[in-house]
Amino acid sequence: MLKLIGAALVLFAGTMIGFVQAARFAERPRQIRHLLHALQRMETEIGYGQTPLPEALARIAQVLPPPLSGLFAETAASLQSASGGTVRDSWEKAFRSGWSATAMRPAERDAMLRLGGTLGGSGREDQLKHLRLAMHQLQAEEAAAREDQQRYEKLCRSLGVLAAALVVILMM
């Protein structure tokens, strides 16, 4: 009896691990897409509205879903605070500390950090160019992420179940 309960628990845990892994693969392209939307929005705020950066970041944070909104909200708050540093420092701090909560990889983070180093520091045309460059990089990453998703999402799910089943068989 005890053995059966144990086997069921192992099976359940294995399946869940597989599902969590699969979810990360599914989540990554979605989050990259959200980042792209955020950058597109920033392009409008800078190019058309000429909104000051702290305000633009705060607005973007409002429309993004949770793990990403935190990154922008933290940068905006740091810029608006009285002792706020430069954009580069605030941005880097927020993105380095908050990145682990997202499903994205270092490649996307590096693209965003490079963008942070130039934000607010030059004229409008230049800013738009940097934003487009970052968007191109993210688009490439998104394509790769989608490929990974197709390849590994189902694999992860079935691998979890199968690995759990293997363990159960070995234990029996």
Binding site: I46, Q50, T51, P52, L53, P54, A56, L79, G84, G85, T86, V87, L119, G120, G121, S122, G123, R124, D126, Q127
Partner: peptide, 17 residues
């Protein structure tokens, strides 16, 4: 001076061109 410039332009040189 760089920090001062960033602060007085509200971190947005593009908005004060």
């Amino acid at each position: 001076c760089r920090t001062l410039l960033e602060r007085v332009t509200n971190h947005s040189l593009y908005a004060v061109e």
